[in-house]
Measured scan of single mutants.
Amino acid sequence: TETREFDNEEEARKEAERLRRKGQDVQIRKKGNRWELRRT
């Protein structure tokens, strides 16, 4: 599992969408005042 953190939700969602188009399974969750993007 690979995780990346983003400062805002929009960036996290854009990156998640990009990875999903490549066929990756991605989850986003709020972590304090940041957003965590998890690739499984």
Rank of each mutant, 00 (worst) to 15 (best):
T1I: 13
T1R: 11
T1L: 12
T1M: 13
T1N: 12
T1W: 15
T1D: 12
E2M: 13
E2V: 13
E2H: 13
E2W: 14
T3I: 14
T3Q: 08
T3F: 12
T3C: 15
R4I: 14
R4V: 13
R4Q: 13
R4K: 11
E5I: 14
F6A: 01
D7Q: 06
D7T: 08
D7R: 05
D7F: 06
D7L: 07
N8T: 14
E9T: 01
E9S: 03
E9F: 15
E10V: 08
E10S: 07
E10H: 10
E10F: 11
E11H: 04
E11M: 06
E11I: 03
E11G: 04
E11Y: 03
E11Q: 08
A12L: 03
R13V: 12
R13N: 12
K14M: 12
K14A: 14
K14D: 09
K14G: 07
K14L: 11
E15V: 07
E15R: 02
E15W: 08
E15G: 03
E15F: 07
A16Y: 12
A16W: 09
A16M: 12
E17Y: 04
E17G: 06
R18E: 09
R18G: 05
R18H: 09
L19A: 05
L19Q: 05
L19K: 02
R20H: 07
R20W: 08
R20V: 06
R20L: 06
R21K: 12
K22R: 11
K22Y: 09
G23M: 02
G23S: 02
Q24E: 13
Q24D: 10
D25W: 10
D25Q: 13
D25M: 13
D25Y: 13
V26L: 03
V26K: 01
Q27D: 09
Q27Y: 10
Q27S: 11
I28E: 00
I28R: 01
R29Q: 11
R29T: 13
R29N: 09
K30L: 03
K30A: 06
K31Q: 07
K31T: 09
K31V: 14
G32M: 00
G32A: 01
G32F: 00
G32Q: 02
G32K: 04
N33H: 04
R34P: 00
R34V: 06
W35I: 03
W35V: 02
E36A: 00
E36I: 08
E36F: 05
L37P: 12
L37K: 06
L37I: 13
L37R: 03
L37V: 15
R38T: 15
R38Q: 14
R38K: 12
R39P: 15
R39M: 15
T40A: 10
T40V: 14
T40Y: 09
T40G: 10
T40S: 11
